[in-house]
């Protein structure tokens, strides 16, 4: 830890802030169901790239922020995101070696896990089961993953985030 000085925390913070902004950005009604889980994607990337810095704690904090921003139950997203961060952290070394398309598939699974957790909580609260469109955003997230990965990787290299 002490051997490698920490750098580029600003980039990590900025990417998380951008993800939060994209999450609450107003979209037309028809486009709303296609909104990917930006915060999960960014969390997965940074947990894979810098597991010593971003992990369960950051995931939980992001979740609480999402809960406050979008008006869900406090802890609803925090629970899901801390688990996602944990799973990603466990397999970050394998995930790094995968080719991008294979990474996309893993990311799809992670995004689906997040949705299933949300669904459980919504069910426990007695909210109605959402329509099939609930499952579109993980697919969009999977298709976006290669671009997010490349953009964030270039940023990380440029600013030497460690």
């Amino acid at each position: 830890m002490t051997l490698t000085p920490r750098r580029g925390g600003g980039i990590i913070l900025a990417s998380f802030l951008l993800a939060l902004l994209l999450t609450i950005l107003p979209l037309p009604e028809w486009a709303r169901i296609y909104r990917p889980q930006w915060y999960t994607l960014v969390l997965i990337y940074w947990t894979t790239a810098t597991p010593q810095r971003v992990g369960v704690g950051i995931g939980w904090l992001t979740g609480i922020i999402i809960d406050v921003l979008t008006g869900t139950l406090l802890g609803q997203h925090a629970l899901a995101l801390s688990l996602i961060a944990y799973i990603t952290h466990k397999m970050h070394q394998r995930l790094r070696l995968f080719p991008i398309w294979q990474q996309s598939l893993v990311v799809l699974v992670l995004l689906l896990i997040e949705r299933v957790l949300q669904l459980w909580i919504m069910g426990a609260l007695g909210q109605p089961v959402p329509t099939l469109s609930f499952w579109i955003s993980p697919l969009v997230g999977m298709l976006l993953w290669p671009w997010i990965y490349i953009i964030l990787r270039d940023l990380r290299r440029k600013f030497q985030v460690r």
Partner: peptide, 18 residues
């Protein structure tokens, strides 16, 4: 990491219930 995630889950569930 494992203790941390257990802690996070417990805290989240407690928050939700509260």
């Amino acid at each position: 990491m494992t203790t941390r995630v257990v802690f996070a889950v417990v805290v989240s569930v407690a928050l939700m219930v509260m």
